[in-house]
Design a protein around this nucleic acid. Structure first.
Lengths: 348, 348
DNA sequence: TTGAAAGCGCTAACAA
DNA sequence: TTGTTAGCGCTTTCAA
């Protein structure tokens, strides 16, 4: 191995192996029409010299970079980190790599990063669009796949999200089984479409169950532990509910604190069901029983859809991935920890 | 805006604005020696057409891609996600972008991703080296900055890590203040250099304090919640320690469970101090008091060092960043939540 | 099966 | 201040 292996070019390899650079290129890209003899000589020269093909030049010529962009709110958020991991895993399998950008839910950053993406000539991008920023999006010629519920504002673009309705249903069925009755609800930011869907699903299922949904107790709060704790305290003032279904795990965890602080026990006095599947929910005591969003799978599927779109597939679908129920300790037990999965849906 | 903006080249802009492509190039790179007239015409043409310079071609010519690689064990791990976020933030400020790869602590993957990195012609890379895989590393001509304690095996490469000794000391001083005495230790994987440093620091400080360090109680366990719980149970069998110092937050959280299960109270009967600063430690009840590693800062600093190295700086230093103490509820209180920071160290 | 030659879109001498 | 020219390292016709 020479030490300046990085600066070798196929011309060097051509010289070393006594063939033309075209032949070197053919061997390198695994073309068929190369003699065994030539292939061997080239391969040897490559290995002896430690030569690495310059992907940049290759990309410029071929128009493909083998890179995709991933534009998410925040990689430090466990949910998005999982999504990223899923996308990376799928990318690695196809020898692609992922360029990650954080929008911090800021349309302006989203816009800037989108520009950076197109300039880097990524082959495509996966993005979780924030409120307004993506007029740019539609304009860009980069193949795009959207993730998250906000994706619905762009029905013309393929997308993948979690099936919140199915997740809610999964949870409610579990409550029915345990004979806990209609839950009180802890919900977050009223602006999110996710909230509406959550409450809507509960109402719908509840009505079908014959629950008195007009009397559904619903407490708003911030999408944080503190917010959940406060909301739960307020809820408790109106009477102790047998079971609470929170629209996210942070609030559920906060609710758990509030229950404890009120001198009540979970799950004996108040049962709690969360929604998200953040890792933090594992460590509470008792561990939080929750509906888990298929975060990693979302990333993986998004990459797969993007891959199809890049390959020229015209009708890439919208996908809705099933949530699963992870049993820990905040609902009265059936038979201990387990995971129940639902069915996925794919629509075009 | 035309719709095929993506396929325009500077030649089109040259034609549109009636100058040569060199002039277009000059305007685009903000060169000084361009007439106002020309600059205006070019700028207008660019805006009218929606042209975006092809970074690929630029990179090929200039030898700079504006991308750096980040090779870490797992982006889904909160610690590494924070590191990644720090690196991205610093990169964004310098108009660079970050290509992230996961090694999963596997030397073989590390090797493959390192290859992918060099082939993508990143300007440099930040890597957390795993056990053996990086002979490749030294051989590669790519500017490198290492992160994590394993970096010490490569003294010739710049690195940034957290100052474990300082962190331990910070924690122990807190125990002294609260008059808790010498802690029992919960430690993980014996192979990690981090473990040795942790225990070593405790011994050293303890001796200086006049603690009976020969009698130091030390319990091994897996680096998980379960591992911590089991280790704590075993510890408890030998007598209830007044305070436990865990080498990582997961084990500390497990210990908290074990204490509760033994019918003991934390922090009244057994006080617990963790080490890491994982987000999960916020949600336990009581919240875990812990020594927080400067994860985001590590990523940011690593990028900055890399940047210097890319710029040609020959003696980029090793950096050791200070940990901080975050007070929550598992130590007897002083005056409520607060963060105490230590001093950083930079060595060359 | 091979090689020569023409670019991919841009930058950077160099000359004007 | 500008334009001309020669590549960056590779792929890809086209002929041989």
């Amino acid at each position: 191995m020479t030490d300046n292996a990085a600066s070798l070019t196929i011309i060097d390899i051509a010289r070393l192996s006594g063939v033309s650079k075209s032949t070197v290129s053919r061997v390198l890209s695994g073309a068929e029409n190369v003699s065994e003899e030539a292939r061997r000589k080239v391969t040897e020269a490559v290995e002896a010299s430690g030569f690495r093909r310059n992907e940049l030049a290759r990309s410029l010529r071929s128009g493909r970079t083998g890179m995709v962009g991933l534009l998410i709110p925040d990689i430090a958020n466990p949910f998005w980190a999982e999504v990223a991991r899923g996308a990376q895993d799928a990318a690695t399998e196809e020898m692609a790599s992922v360029l990650i950008f954080n929008s911090d839910w800021d349309p302006e950053r989203e816009r800037r990063h989108l520009m950076a993406l197109t300039q880097s000539r990524v082959d495509g991008a996966i993005v979780n669009p924030v409120q307004n920023g993506l007029d740019e999006l539609s304009r860009s010629q980069v193949p795009l796949v959207l993730i998250g519920s906000s994706a619905e504002r762009f029905p013309e673009l393929p997308s993948v999200g979690s099936d919140i309705t199915q997740g809610v249903q999964l949870g409610l069925e579990r409550l029915v089984q345990a004979d806990l009755g209609m839950p009180a609800l802890l919900v977050g930011d009223p602006h999110r479409t996710a909230r509406e869907r959550f409450v809507g699903a509960v109402r719908e299922f509840g009505a079908a169950q014959g629950w008195p949904v007009e009397g559904l107790r619903l407490q708003d709060g911030h999408y944080t532990i503190e917010g959940g704790r406060d909301a739960m305290k307020r809820l408790l003032q109106g009477g102790v509910p047998r079971v609470v279904f929170a629209a996210n795990d942070m609030m559920a965890l906060g609710a758990l604190h509030a229950v404890r602080e009120a001198g009540l026990n979970c799950p004996e006095d108040v049962a709690i069901l969360g929604f998200d599947g953040t890792p933090a929910a594992e460590v509470s005591m008792p561990g939080l029983t929750t509906i888990m969003k298929p975060s990693r799978d979302i990333g993986r599927r998004a990459f797969e859809l993007l891959s199809r779109k890049i390959a020229g597939d015209e009708d890439v679908p919208h996908m809705s991935l099933p949530c699963s129920l992870v049993e820990r300790g905040t609902l009265p037990t059936r038979e201990g920890p387990r995971v129940v999965r639902g069915e996925g849906r794919t629509a075009t």
